[in-house]
Amino acid sequence: MGTDHRAVWVIAEQINCHLQSVSLQLIGQARKLADQLGTLVEAILLGDKIEQPARQLIAAGADRVYLGNAPELEVYQPELYTQIAVNLASEQQPEIILIGSTDMGRELAPLVAAHLKTGLTAHCIDFVLDKELILEQRIPAYGGLLSIVCPEKRPQMATAAKGVFATPEPDDSRTGEIVLIDIPTDLPGRVKTLEIIREEPQGVPLETASTIVAGGAGAGDIDGWKDICELAAVLNAALGSTRPAVDEGWAELETMIGQSGKMVSPEVYIGVGLSGEQQHMVGIVGARVMVAINNDDKSPIFEQVDYGIVDDCRKFLPALIEQIKQYEEKKNTCE
């Protein structure tokens, strides 16, 4: 095995001792890159009582796991997590560090990158090595694809969202090394996580929904948005949104689909009052049937769907909802 290149790293994440799926997906990417570079895949995993998830990382393709296993690491602690990652990376000098775009990852990644005085590319959808074996970090933008590189500084760092990459098949016969790491004690103690509270999500979860109704700025106002919510409800669909709808305050951040939001793969997607901007559309992977409702017949969304309705969604949606309800009623009386 060539030793020209240092290892490819993944900063993995667990919640209540369960690995985040994006961590395994990034191990798959790290494996691909490390094989081409002739180097190792290494992961950092921090938490409490997490030997099992550490073995899962190895089964997914990691050669070595740096394991911080202690009660004070149970939940994300910004100073502690940053310090551990920065210390280890300064010592081991990995070639690449990949991090999931989770709530934790989106805070931890820039903290680690700034400490290491290196670049960080957000929300990548593809990783490719160029001729000089520099990492091309690809992101969608402006109706095209940008390749971002970090030619001089190391490590090359990037985040990616859950669901962009496939989860590798676990191979329980794979072996790897688990290295227990020391926990720093000399921290300034200026920021501390007191607790993290999570609730069971309401409604149909976006990631697994077979039908998604997504709305955008074309809803016009909160009443227009309520119509989109009602359409989702009558179709028993999950509700999705675009960044402008979130910025307007109509939709929760959790419902945002796209490059900086969630990646989804429904059977049927219905986009209402949105223009088909790439940042949103890139989040919809392999939908079988796509429908758009938009009042502008020139909107780019109509080049990306199977069925289009050119109409004012404020007027069209109430009529459609009524029609669907009537259809359901008729169906029920027939049964």
């Binding site: 005085k117 290196t118 670049g119 960080l120 590319t121 160029d130 091309e136 970090q137 969608p140 402006y142 109706g143 095209g144 694809l145 940008l146 390749s147 971002i148 590189v149 970090c150 030619p151 001089e152 500084k153 790439q278 559309m281 796509m290 758009a292 017949d297 109509f302 080049e303 990306q304 769907v305 199977d306 069925y307 289009g308 309705i309 050119v310 109409d311 007027k315 069209f316 009529a319 459609l320 009524e322 029609q323």
Partner: peptide, 28 residues
């Protein structure tokens, strides 16, 4: 530290759209 190395116009996921036309009732 980071630079844009390439800017590619991407072949978007184009689909053959069928626009449903008519009165509002016909469209629904």
């Amino acid at each position: 530290p980071t630079i844009v190395s390439e800017l590619n116009a991407q072949e978007e996921n184009k689909r053959q759209v069928e626009i449903l036309t008519g009165t509002r009732e016909e469209k629904t």
